[in-house]
Write a protein that binds this DNA or RNA. Structure first.
Lengths: 254, 254
DNA sequence: ACCTGAACACCGTTCAAGT
DNA sequence: ACCTGAACACCGTTCAAGT
């Protein structure tokens, strides 16, 4: 090998240059990839750096720390949530659609619920999601306090339900089968309890163990929405502050 | 020091013998102590062993692994939850009392909500709590499926709310002050958003940030209980299956 | 039977030094 | 300015060896 011969321009690689520069976007994208494929525990700074073919210390030039990285991953994934524009007469159904969309996103990304559960979504996409959620909730006539809290309550519910569902088939693969086996075992255990000491558990062994994730989710959604309506539609109905529901209308000041 | 002189019997320490034998109870008690004083992140097997003046490998003779230890700590603390015996005509109030008691337990033990959030309480005290919860819920006339799921929904709600409250003043001390400062900052931020793009966030900046933890909790409780009543008291009222609500009564078979 | 020391295979974060 | 290697101060779990 006598000398370095320069590579002619048409041979230079267009995509995948020798080393793509490290950016925050590239880090966050790769982190999400590891999360989906291997879960939260596998998403270490070192593993991530290895995937990016760099040293693990280099990451700290772009992300602060691991917790901040998870903030960014969470906010990125929030782009996938669909929040409907309010349509008259479909309030309850649209709230459900929104929650189902959020749930689908959780189930599509392994361990995302674990990331979301103790995080307030204050990134750009989180804020946008909050705005749209409030818009939808208020279109049903919820008074201010209930609209403000209702969004929190609903997203907490969806997150917790997704967390519980994904933690049932923890670690290993085989989602449905494992959940079923666990339910069967639990059913047998509850039925075997002394009925004088645990009459309710013995009696309800069936209902307790037969509720699958979808049914639990829809039931909880029904309950919370009914509760919101019962608590919030009573004292003011539809037309207390006309014209503040859609973007661009005039607002009363602070 | 020429020779070992034996200690006379009346001088031998009655309590705190040279080395109390390592037992599961002692391990779990000590773990709870570390949790309360220093939080979940400080509760490592090594730190725990140090507190017990033993090698960290010794713990594995009594607890399996760290996750199982946390199961045991969680179940231990569940003894502190008070679940009322049903009294006629006080159903909704008693459900609230139960949830408030659970909340107090979470707030009394640092990071307990983080332990509880992804755990099903299947230890002895967890099972007992489930039985009593179902007994109370059914006394209000909830149909089987709703009683079975209602307990889950309520405890998930209490846990998630406690988690959010404790994560607001994360790490460092100063609970109330930090929460207030954070709320003020958030209020300013929301107010500063472009009102044409974020009309609802700007309008609701007040309600969103002024809800303190107690108010949030009571509001959520109200909503869920109202939802349970709306969804479950409709199709069967008080007397469908007489006498199965209290321990000892006859039960229909499986 | 119970406990121990040592080892294995990891972590997140910092920082002086290089290019 | 950006990246790196090396170091610091930790982890949970296993296991052969001791008493």
């Amino acid at each position: 090998m006598p000398e370095e011969i320069p590579v002619p321009p048409w041979r230079r690689p267009k995509k995948a240059p020798p080393r793509m520069p490290l950016t925050q976007d590239r880090i966050v994208d790769t982190a999400l990839g590891i999360l989906d494929a291997e879960g939260l525990d596998a998403l270490s700074m070192r593993r991530l750096a290895q995937e990016l073919k760099t040293g693990h210390a280099s990451l700290y030039a772009h992300v602060g720390n691991r917790d901040e990285l998870l903030d960014l991953v969470f906010d990125l994934v929030l782009t996938e949530v669909e929040i409907p524009q309010p349509e008259p007469g479909r309030w309850a159904e649209q709230v459900k659609e929104m929650c189902r969309s959020l749930r689908r996103v959780f189930l599509a990304h392994r361990d995302l619920a674990r990331i979301a559960i103790d995080r307030v979504p204050l990134g750009p996409n989180g804020i946008l999601g909050m705005e749209r959620t409030l818009n939808l909730l208020r279109s049903g006539g919820l008074r201010d306090e209930l609209a403000a809290y209702g969004g929190d309550l609903l997203s907490t519910f969806v997150t917790a339900e997704a967390l519980e569902q994904s933690s049932r088939h923890s670690g290993t693969e085989q989602s449905e089968e494992q959940a079923g086996m666990f339910a069967d075992q639990l059913h047998g255990y509850l039925k075997s309890l002394p009925p004088t000491q645990f009459p309710n558990l013995v009696h309800l062994a069936g209902p307790i163990t037969s509720l699958d994730s979808d049914r639990r989710f829809e039931l909880g959604l029904e309950i919370i929405i009914a509760g919101l309506v019962a608590a919030g539609a009573g004292d003011d109905a539809d037309d207390r502050e006309p014209g503040i529901r859609t973007a661009g209308s005039t607002l009363p000041g602070s």
